[in-house]
Design a protein around this nucleic acid. Sequence first.
DNA 1: CTTGACATCCGAAACGTTTCGGATTAAACT
DNA 2: AGTTTAATCCGAAACGTTTCGGATGTCAAG
Lengths: 338, 338
Amino acid sequence: MKVTLREVAKKAGLSVTTVSRALNGHDDVAEETKQAIRSVADSLGYTPNLNARRLKTEKADAIGLIIPQETLRFSDPFFSDLLSGIVEQSSQYGIELNITTPLSSDKVEETYLNYIRSRRVDGFILVRVQENDPRIALLQQHNFPFVAFGHTAESTFPYVDEDGSTGIKTAVSHLVMLGHTRIACITEPQHLAKSKARLQGFLDGLADHGLTADPNLIIEGNFRQRSGYACTQELLDNENPPTAIVTVNDLLALGAITAVRERGLVVGRDISITGFDDILLAEYADPPLTTLHQPAHQLGILLCQTLNQVINKEIENPQTILVPELIIRGSTGTAPKS
Amino acid sequence: MKVTLREVAKKAGLSVTTVSRALNGHDDVAEETKQAIRSVADSLGYTPNLNARRLKTEKADAIGLIIPQETLRFSDPFFSDLLSGIVEQSSQYGIELNITTPLSSDKVEETYLNYIRSRRVDGFILVRVQENDPRIALLQQHNFPFVAFGHTAESTFPYVDEDGSTGIKTAVSHLVMLGHTRIACITEPQHLAKSKARLQGFLDGLADHGLTADPNLIIEGNFRQRSGYACTQELLDNENPPTAIVTVNDLLALGAITAVRERGLVVGRDISITGFDDILLAEYADPPLTTLHQPAHQLGILLCQTLNQVINKEIENPQTILVPELIIRGSTGTAPKS
DNA sequence: CTTGACATCCGAAACGTTTCGGATTAAACT
DNA sequence: AGTTTAATCCGAAACGTTTCGGATGTCAAG
């Protein structure tokens, strides 16, 4: 049933050594023997036992993706596109993609350590990086290859990231150009690096146009539609409500749209709303959502490519930042005259 | 740096054999030596080299999920919830989850074969099963453990599935009770088992109430919103348009809602629409979508549990079917008087 | 005719684990 | 006292691969 190198060797009348070297394309075996060996191997349906190879070579040809429980639970569309990019690229490279989640939130580092020590992956892709992320400290200390999706100003490690700050600034500019001055912002929890960056972009964007942020108009939500809905209610209850709301992701924006409409207001006329990510549903929202397009799938591919380079030491400290593009749709319009 | 069994043994003053057996909890080593060994192992930070273990035991403690390219590309929310369930449960079991996609659609079986022969997984979870699925034939022929998400009437293999037919029947009944008689259906491509079942449910549902399906009102879409939009346009252009549309997944329904509204009609009053899956966005659609709730996350967990049982031969041929529950929201209402 | 260089092949060891079959000792029976 | 039994422990082989360090043969150059 199972066919090993030894059997290929026997059938080909050659040594195991030669067969191994032939199949791995070394140049100390004659071209015609290589051919012969390959055809024997094919006829027997030989596929190397990966575990044996890994044991010997001390390479796993695999990468790990340890998803935080929070990310796992509230699967947002952006993340699944990111994931699909990672899956696609790792498959293309012929390396395994190994996905897990820590058993509990206080066992994150334990999980990483176990993976490192048991030698089952050559590197990690990190998502949801935080400031002073303990995972990164751990990996750096062990000198273990990884690439982070996310960064801060001080980051000295390999990462791929969006430029969330610039992205939001673009959205703010867009709104200011439309005449808005009372602009609100619904943010995400601030422990994540990317959420911080986006909020900063909002503040900077206002400042760029000589506006100052009204603290009453900055409100922290989470990552879900329901939260966008609730935050918007709160904003609209304000005695001097905003004419535009910058939300920090599309799901928040969709929730905001629902809330606005429930009050009998028209999105894009009475109140403008912007999102972030350009998930599939943004285009089909009603009205279609003005948002910042993130090439999620592409980012996933890039993450995987970068990690591969880090593992193979082809590059020392790659850092890539992609600037999202503003897609203007119906959810934003000129400010109402007051 | 790396610590092996040998070093634990040396430090503990015992043989490699004993250390191995102690750590694996065999009962031919004294309780106090076990304790001692464990503490030495912990102090050294020993973690077994998985590749060595796998080589020896011929078990991978890993399962594979080979995602078809189509599924990968158009990441639907349902699938990511399913995936999250699989990730969660496999992590809980402490087995690896290995995700790939075939390099091209004609290399699907090659990919499976490679995985089987290289001994890197103990079993597979299959998604998007078709009638007479060649992957299933292959796995059965190799006597390799797997569990399918999906089935047909003749299926003799282990599966977990939703009862799509009964689900849609429930939706049809609901509409009939509301007085609808001209009911349309937007289906998915019929090569998938689940899509076939859902269409059958539609036909059976009508028949149950003595209605016959109008071929003009059955129209094949795909899996995306855009398609639901286009199909609905077509339905509404009919000379005798339907008063209700049963769509076979939520994204189609969301597209349908957009199309209906664009014509100035009111969903839930002029035209009723039902979906299937109850994705996160269904509740926040406008109007909220009447749909069939699928416990996607739970299904993922169940798939993983079932596969585990199959691998460990705890059960011979497990087949589970979950009946989806109709969630009535605002997108359906009494039929307009004509 | 010898020498060296080159091309091609191979034996044996090693990676770190598990396990088979036995060895040792002490306790518990005839 | 001798013999069985049980409790602990261990040596060595094996899983299938890669690779180090040669071995063999051929051929051109000296």
